[in-house]
Design a protein around this nucleic acid. Structure first.
Lengths: 199, 199
DNA sequence: CTATAATTAAAACATGTGTTTGAAACTGTT
DNA sequence: AACAGTTTCAAACACATGTTTTAATTATAG
């Protein structure tokens, strides 16, 4: 799994999936650009669907753990936690990751977007089942950081995810810091407004 | 173009595209479920790519005109326009349309999301070129409704679009009114916060 | 070194794709 | 009724896809 053939396949597949979509990207294109044999995908990963899942989980796992680490920091700094810090813990790792995953920005975010849109191999269900605890943890933190709790908190967080995903997909590496700061402010104001109504 | 064969093709294709994506949906599936012959798509529409464009423009044109009509109303009611009214003019037609396009909710919104994600036949470029004046008009209206103008207004509107698209795709018909109201409040607060910083 | 397993390679396989074709069925007009 | 123009239909076409197979190659122990 960690040999150079699998790695080259995963890296190349990630790039092509993000650029062209899961369905539109062929195994022949992946293996050709990765410099490996066509049969290597089925040999090392099993199938194309399994490759999609593997590409996805590799980054999703580190994204989740980075988010939770930052969140723990924010929680230890003040009680109740500060809303800005909580949202930053959610947004910044996504930023850094898409900037870091080499080449032009937003690759992984575009991948997330596609995962939701194409729903290859019921990815959406698999993901939300597998990472629901992360979302629950963040929802709890947001709830505690607001004096009054909005009645539709989960929906508000969906707004945040949508804005994050969509905006990141259009943002290049240079303007990412600015975009993140802007989005944190945007979402904080939205959440606080909703909380004030619920009061 | 308005005969029942083309209509059945467009309706069925819209549903399947929204559910499965452009690439994953085959002409055989479309024509079978529409009850027409396989060759009918190429005969009436020309090609699969042309079908995708046709499916898209049919709803996009009415969406744009409904948005602009509501915006004109909002502009005539008060000068400068009220931000809530401007955002409602942008959000509500999208809501009504996805609720109206028959069956379970969010179909057209999911289609929009896919159009962006899959980018079949460079749809993204075609769309933003063809409907850029709508976005410009709304950006102007928002600008006038804020006392101070945020420096990154266009980005803020992208947040709105992302939140709208993502949230709508997950919302069923019943909770749409509530979702819309919630999103208007969310986005208004976000925009006003950004504007206050720019002051 | 040798045998045993793991990996790579080229080719073929089965299937599904968008599109085209040419004849049949239908439509409206004179 | 007979013709012209549309539209439908079944079949075939050319090609691309994911996967499997079988042999060659390389690595790994004994």
């Amino acid at each position: 799994m960690t040999d150079s053939t699998s790695l080259r396949i995963l890296d190349t597949a990630e790039r092509l999936f993000a650029d062209q979509g899961f369905h539109a990207t062929t195994l022949r294109q992946i293996t050709r650009e990765a410099g490996v044999n066509l049969a290597a995908v089925n040999y090392h990963l099993g199938s194309k669907d399994a490759l999609i899942l593997a590409v996805f989980r590799r980054r999703m796992d580190t994204l989740s753990s980075e988010r939770l680490t930052l969140l723990k920091q924010a929680l230890s700094e003040s009680d109740p936690p500060q809303l800005e810090r909580v949202l930053e813990a959610f947004i910044h790792p996504a930023l850094r990751m898409s900037a870091r995953s080499s080449g032009d920005g937003g690759r992984f975010m575009r991948l997330l977007m596609r995962a939701w849109a194409e729903n290859a191999t019921q990815l959406h269900g698999v993901i939300s089942r597998q990472y629901s605890h992360v979302m629950r943890t963040f929802a709890d933190a947001v709830r505690r950081s607001l004096k009054t709790v909005p009645s539709d908190l989960r929906q508000q967080l969906d707004f945040l995810i949508g804005a994050l995903t969509y905006a990141m997909a259009e943002t290049d590496d240079d303007s990412m810091q600015q975009t993140a700061a802007s989005l944190v402010g945007f979402a904080c104001a939205g959440l606080r407004q909703s909380a004030s109504i619920a009061a």
